[in-house]
């Protein structure tokens, strides 16, 4: 995994995501989810290209079930863009990098 992507769990979610000064793109994933692997290269590119302006984070839904359930996530991969503690964008499924960037750009 790229060093630009941070690991987030139920316990540090508030600190790392909700209280973050920069917007956070949170990737909800699991090891058994094939399509979750499909978007990893895109996320690595985005983490690098938007360094300093956007934090890219990953959360394993098996290890951290509370956060996905709180946001009614029923499908992975789901990408949530948080800004100022609120969800600004929800992207469901393995979509091309371009689509992810279009959604992010509106808020940066």
């Amino acid at each position: 995994m790229s060093e630009d992507i941070i690991e987030v769990t139920d316990s540090n979610f508030e600190e790392e995501v909700l209280k973050s000064d920069t917007p956070v793109l949170l990737d909800l994933w699991a090891v058994w989810c094939g399509p979750c692997n499909i978007i990893v290269p895109s996320l690595e590119n985005i983490a690098q290209d938007y360094k300093g302006r956007l934090k890219v984070a990953k959360m394993n839904v098996d290890e951290s079930p509370m956060t996905p359930s709180k946001f009614s996530v029923m499908s992975i991969p789901t990408l949530l863009l948080f800004q100022g503690g609120e969800i600004k964008e929800t992207i469901i499924g393995a979509v091309p990098q371009k689509k992810i960037e279009e959604a992010i750009k509106k808020h940066l």
Binding site: W32, C33, G34, C36, D62, M74, I76
Partner: peptide, 9 residues
């Protein structure tokens, strides 16, 4: 559209 991805939910 993907049971492997979402079944566990």
């Amino acid at each position: 559209y993907c049971a492997t991805c979402d079944g566990a939910f």
